[in-house]
């Protein structure tokens, strides 16, 4: 079958202000294009037919990755998954984020897919979201009225929905906090198995215990989510076997039961529980 796209106008602005103007002029008829790995698939098979496609890859300053000890890790929205997973700055400071980016699709997909596109597409399963939630990433968003910073936890609104309103994500900043983290993906064993679930956990190891405990999950709720109660529990009780098991149970309960019709609620909870216990236990041992 030939899957073709409806005709559209292709626009390639060279500045951010030009892009925002186009987005303002065309409103709902326009779509931003980054790597296209979600958008083009959507236009081919999901009946998406924007009249204007605004390619932001001609705009300078939206790519690149850099670390500054005072500012933190800055990742441009157009950094590709291949770039994120190979970046020495990312690997040195937050290796688990590099691992998450390296889990996306195939080489061909990672060479095009951008980290910003992954967030803006706002799939509940967005691969890089759990790690970025654990890192307290602050997203920079440009709009007609200027720039604003949005905490990643505030960014997602529902499946495919974000707080962006005629705006463009320009990048993200990860505060320079020392952390060790882990990202584990449960991959389906067969077609009947549930969709991939991703679990990330990160902590700041300190004398006598962990600080900044973060646990975040992908594909268990309408948006990627943090599990605050479980984080709080570990913070209070420390990294004991009992606390980790209880945190796992709490995480399992957050997996919203009606969210995925393919899996029974119990099965999904159990998967999440096991993933979170594994993630926290591995952090203990590492």
């Amino acid at each position: 079958m030939l899957r073709s796209m409806q005709p559209f106008n292709y626009l390639r602005p060279s500045t951010l202000s030009e892009a925002l103007k186009l987005l303002g002029d065309h409103g709902r008829e326009a779509k931003v294009l980054a790597g296209g790995t979600d958008l083009i698939v959507g236009m081919k098979e999901k009946g998406l037919s924007p009249r204007y496609v605004i390619d932001i890859k001609g705009i300078e300053g939206l790519d690149g990755i850099g670390y500054d000890p005072n500012e933190g890790l800055r990742i441009g929205t157009l950094a590709t998954m291949s770039e994120v997973s190979a970046s020495s700055c990312v690997r040195e400071h937050y290796l688990f984020l590099a691992h998450a980016a390296g889990e996306v699709g195939s080489v061909q997909v990672r060479n095009r897919a951008t980290i910003g596109g992954n967030l803006c597409n706002a799939a509940p399963s967005a691969e890089t979201a759990p790690a970025l939630l654990c890192l307290d990433a602050v997203l920079t968003v440009a709009g007609p009225k200027g720039e604003r910073a949005v905490a990643i936890e505030e960014f997602f609104r529902g499946p495919g929905m974000t707080v962006l309103d005629g705006e463009i994500l320009t990048g993200m900043l990860i505060p320079p906090v020392e952390r060790k983290g882990i990202y584990i993906k449960h991959s389906p064993r067969n077609a009947m198995d549930i969709a991939v679930i991703g679990a990330a956990a990160a902590v700041t190891p300190k004398e006598g215990g962990w600080e900044n405990v973060r646990i975040a999950l992908g594909a268990v709720a309408p948006t990627p989510v943090r599990v605050h109660e479980a984080e709080e529990l570990i913070r209070k009780k420390g990294q004991t076997k009992e606390a980790i098991e209880e945190a796992g149970r709490m995480a399992g309960e957050t997996a919203s039961p009606i969210f995925d019709v393919r899996a029974s609620a119990e099965y999904r909870s159990e998967m999440v529980e096991n993933l979170v216990i594994r993630a926290l236990s591995e952090l203990c041992d590492s």
């Binding site: 790995t37 081919k44 098979e45 291949s82 080489v107 061909q108 060479n111 095009r112």
Partner: peptide, 20 residues
């Protein structure tokens, strides 16, 4: 739709799916 790799070409030294 990016799933099979049959359309792979090398673009600016990187493998990409030319259908996407």
């Amino acid at each position: 739709t990016g799933d099979c790799g049959a359309c792979t070409v090398i673009m600016n030294h990187k493998a990409v799916s030319s259908c996407l």
